[in-house]
Design a binder for these strands. Structure first.
Length: 883
RNA sequence: GGGGCUAUAGCUCAGUUGGUUAGAGCGCUUCGCUCACAUCGAAGAGGUCCUGUGUUCGAGCCACAGUAGUCCCACCA
């Protein structure tokens, strides 16, 4: 009876749930701030409570979890703080859609009732998201979970708003901003997506007052003509010098407007004359300010034209455009229409064409804030990985415009500003007020608007830790160690966290920004709802397990680059998990007499033991090095290779002979090495595949509560065997050569064969001699004869020359001399080609003089080996010729 | 108009500061259900490292130019 419970067959769905519950209920993910322990902290980019997690979240979460689990095992004092984002406009749009299905609008419900509905939504989807994150295996500290509208966060938002206002860094202004007529709110610049569209350039004549002539302008948006208050020309433009100062009759409106000179106009584009509509175009707005022009709003907030548009009052933008063109045509003022490609702005949420509008909004003055944020990155206090993203970040901040932070929405942090209806004063307050502090009036009302959702996100690294109080969390874990996020939100979020942190914490928010790309579909397209090509991570987990999904997301690409998602790859990684599972099953199956107290003396390790221990140590070093460099894919790859190609394919195979052999010590040592190697391999793999590794670990002999809290493997200097590793590699080469010849000669796989090996390196000779069992087990060799290098060679055999050895496979029947000759010739040609290259290199004086000695020596050694090989091959050919 | 990224096997991608006989997974071919695993094992085929020029003793890697694809930023009516 085995004292260790063995594994059944691998079924991820059966083990994953169980271990997450275990970890969570045992507080494995929760650390208290500890004196003397190095901190490591990450704040989870809070997913929007709009709905479900997508593959991007799965990637983001996997990368973070790998770093967190790695550091936790290394003994760091770890905090991974999860949370969710209220996602103002996005969530509001969702809920509006939901109530629209009931035939209601938000106005039917009113602000309060509507917000109740949004909170219900938040509860529902917020919980779903929490479950999804757990399914992925993310080891967040749920006891410290935050929501951007939690009271602590709200307090931080108020503090920051008021403080910035007091410093003069937040101001209110009637300025032109991007306006979404569907959402009916202002948007910041980066919430507008520009897309090239084919539009029309309309050439229109504006009659000159008191003369017969016209001034010809060109516009893509004729519907804004009613709002024109000037026509501008370039002051240097000789064609139009005489026009400057004259009046034009604005068609349709029959209003007189001046011709002005402004350098903004490019004489080479269009007609060189530009209609100026200050209320509805950002450039024109600037021109209007310079020339003190009137600004006429001709649109309502829903994008229809208003009473200032005269007869077009009430029309939609689209209808007004058609009608105005028709009318101009009728008046004979429409000269021509050309097709033109131009960038049109769309609302990033609902894709409605954005309308520049002049409205009263709140802004953050960006120039003073951007400086320190850029400085921190330039000085390397915060590092981007890969570092090229630092450039995009800095370039953006260098050209930053003021940030419009007010939104005409209901869902979000209400702007903490009150207006007194009696004395007209504006009151900015950290606490809610019910009376005007200036005149005592109770006739006050709060600003109806809310803040851009990114305003609260910008404070996330410190608001979640209780700022403005100096909490223990902040003391221990701020600044955070690394922020993991996609390149698509560097502007929205990363940059803003940086400047807010520099302003309020006087310290960076994170030491590293680890940037990843997008997860695309198998054809390289962005996953999107409209294309219907999105893949639900939960579906994948259900089918293949979270471990396989995680491994897929972390391998096969490099930091910062997009990746394509293939089910084939997930399947392959599920197979890898299955492989690990079965290796463990094999190990456990052979532990019935396992002695936990037994530790082999160093000299008891046999060749294969030493080989796998050396490879393990190398892998341990390599994995840590790469994790430290954020090269997670490279780290994962090396574990995969070690587990499959070293441990399973070779070590386990050699172990079989010794487990079932005569010598009791062999068995005990082998058991020890199997358990030792497997356990450490599982530890290395744990950050990547937490579930299966924990499950197996719990079934193996172990000390400690769980693998998630087990120490991270560090290469043991006492168990390094570089020489034996090399010898084992030579033996493996010989085994592969035998297998190859067997296949070529169509020897039945289960048929035993006779092999002779000529070897003159003494250490190798001994190694081969002592480990004949490997050849029996791995290549079905029945009799193995060792020859000295100059001994007569077998006649009826195939031959292969590997480094340090000539390997002969004896055949029962006669060999086909021609075929064999051809085989040897192929080897010879390859060797000759390589010899030629190497000799040429070594004949090059420049190479000998300038290349490092080590490189030269390596080439020399290579040449010697090759020549030896060539000699052996020639000898064999000569022999064959005699047959 | 600026800027980034990508180009390596049929497909998807690695290639760690310039020195390998250029690698992996999948796919493909041949063989094998051998007592951990057919979600497997063994053997094998398959590459003008986008093109050109240059730097260097030496280039898949560095520089310049070009081609193709892709993304971001930008107020040209």
């Amino acid at each position: 009876m085995n004292k260790y419970e063995n594994l059944g067959s691998y079924d991820p769905s059966q083990i994953e749930e169980k271990w997450y519950d275990f970890w969570e209920t045992h507080g494995v993910f929760h650390d208290e701030p500890k004196e003397g322990a190095e901190p490591f902290s990450i704040v989870l980019p809070p997913p929007n409570v709009t709905g479900q997690l997508h593959m991007g979240h799965a990637l983001d979460g996997t990368l973070q979890d790998i770093l967190i689990r790695y550091k936790r095992m290394q003994g760091y004092n770890v905090l991974w703080l999860p949370g969710k984002d209220h996602a103002g406009i996005a969530t509001q749009v969702k809920v509006e859609k939901q109530i629209a299905e009931e035939g209601l609008t938000k106005y039917d419900l009113g602000r309060e009732k509507f917000l109740e509905r949004v909170w219900q939504w938040k509860e529902k989807y917020g919980n779903t998201i929490g479950r999804q994150i757990r399914k992925l295996g993310s080891s967040c500290d749920w006891t410290r979970e935050r929501f951007t509208m939690d009271p602590v966060c709200a307090r931080a938002v108020r503090e920051v708003f008021c403080s910035l206002y007091e410093k003069g860094l937040i101001y209110q202004g009637n300025r032109i901003t991007n306006w979404c007529p569907r959402c009916q709110t202002a948007l910041s610049d980066i919430e507008v997506e520009h897309e090239d569209e084919i539009g029309h350039l309309y050439y229109v004549n504006y009659p000159i007052v008191g003369e017969d002539g016209y001034v010809q302008i060109a516009t893509t948006r004729p519907e804004t003509i009613p709002g024109d208050t000037a026509v501008a020309v370039n002051p240097e433009d000789e064609r139009f010098q005489s026009l400057i100062g004259k009046k034009l009759l604005l068609p349709i409106m029959n209003r007189e407007i001046p011709v002005i000179a402004d350098e903004y106009v490019d004489p080479k584009y269009g007609t060189g004359c530009v209609k100026i509509t200050p209320a509805h175009d950002p450039n024109d707005f600037a021109v209007g300010e310079r020339h003190d022009l009137e600004s006429i709003m001709i649109m309502n907030l829903d994008g229809t034209l208003n009473e200032n548009a005269g007869k077009y009052n009430g029309m939609t933008r689209e209808d007004a455009r058609k009608q105005i063109i028709a009318d101009l045509d009728e008046m004979g003022l429409l000269v021509k229409i050309e097709e033109t490609k131009h960038a049109v702005g769309h609302c990033s949420r609902c894709h409605t064409t954005v309308e520049p509008m002049t409205t009263k909004q709140w802004f953050v003055k960006m120039k003073p804030l951007a400086g320190p944020a850029m400085q921190a990155v330039k000085e390397g206090k915060t590092k981007f990985v890969p570092d090229r993203f630092a450039n995009t970040y800095i370039q953006w901040l260098e050209n930053i415009h003021d940030w419009c932070i007010s939104r005409q929405l209901w869902w979000g942090h209400r702007i903490p500003v009150w207006y007194c209806d009696d004395c007209g004063k504006t009151i900015v307050s950290r606490t809610d007020i019910d009376a005007c502090p200036h005149c005592g009036s109770h006739h006050i009302h709060q600003d109806p608007d809310v803040l851009d959702t990114w305003f609260s996100s910008a404070l996330w690294p410190f608001s979640t830790m209780g700022w403005p109080d100096q909490t223990d969390l902040l003391k221990k874990w701020y600044p955070t160690s690394v922020l993991v996020t996609g390149y698509d939100i560097i502007f929205f979020w990363v940059a803003r966290m940086m400047f807010m942190a520099m302003e309020f914490m006087h310290e960076i928010p994170f030491r590293y920004v680890f940037i990843h790309g997008l997860v695309r579909d198998s054809q390289g397209r962005k996953m999107s709802k409209s294309l219907g090509n999105g893949i639900d991570p939960l579906e994948v987990i259900k089918q293949y397990g979270a471990d396989a999904l995680r491994f897929t997301l972390v391998t096969g690409n490099t930091p910062g680059n997009d990746m394509r998602f293939y089910y084939e790859r997930v399947e392959g990684n599920r197979n890898f998990a299955n492989k690990i599972w079965n290796a463990a099953k094999f190990t456990i199956m052979n532990l019935d007499d396992y002695d936990e107290s037994f530790v082999p003396a160093k000299e008891q390790y046999t060749l294969a033991d030493r080989w796998i221990l050396e490879r393990l140590a190398q892998t341990e070093e390599y994995v840590s090095q790469n994790l430290d460099k954020f090269e997670l894919g490279e780290a994962a790859d090396s574990i995969y290779n070690f587990a499959w190609n070293c441990f399973c394919d070779w070590y386990i195979e050699t172990a079989k002979a010794r487990l079932y052999g005569e010598h009791n010590d062999d068995r005990r040592v082998t058991q020890y090495v199997l358990v030792y190697t497997l356990t450490r391999m599982l530890a290395l793999l744990h950050p990547f595949m937490p579930f299966i590794t924990e499950h197996i670990w719990q079934h193996l002999p172990h000390t400690g509560e769980c693998l998630a809290r087990a120490p991270w493997p560090k290469a043991d200097p006492e168990l390094r065997f570089p020489e034996e590793e090399e010898q084992m590699e030579r033996i493996m080469d010989a085994v592969k050569a035998i297998r190859n010849m067997r296949a070529e000669a169509h020897v039945q796989p289960n048929k035993a064969c006779a092999v002779q090996i000529a070897v003159d390196r003494e250490d190798l000779r001994q190694a081969v001699d002592a480990h004949r069992a490997y050849f029996e087990k791995l290549a079905h060799v029945e009799t193995l004869t060792l020859l000295s290098k100059d001994a007569p060679k077998p006649d009826n055999a195939l031959a292969t020359v590997v480094t340090g050895m000539e390997v002969y496979l004896e055949l029962r029947g006669l060999i086909d001399a021609d075929k064999e000759k051809a085989r040897i010739m192929k080897d010879k040609a390859a060797a000759e080609k390589e010899i030629e290259r190497t000799e040429k290199k070594l004949a090059n004086e420049g190479f000998l003089a300038k290349a490092p000695q080590a490189v030269v020596d390596k080439e020399k050694a290579k040449l010697a080996t090759l020549k030896e090989k060539l000699a052996s091959l020639d000898e064999r050919l000569a022999f064959l010729a005699k047959l």
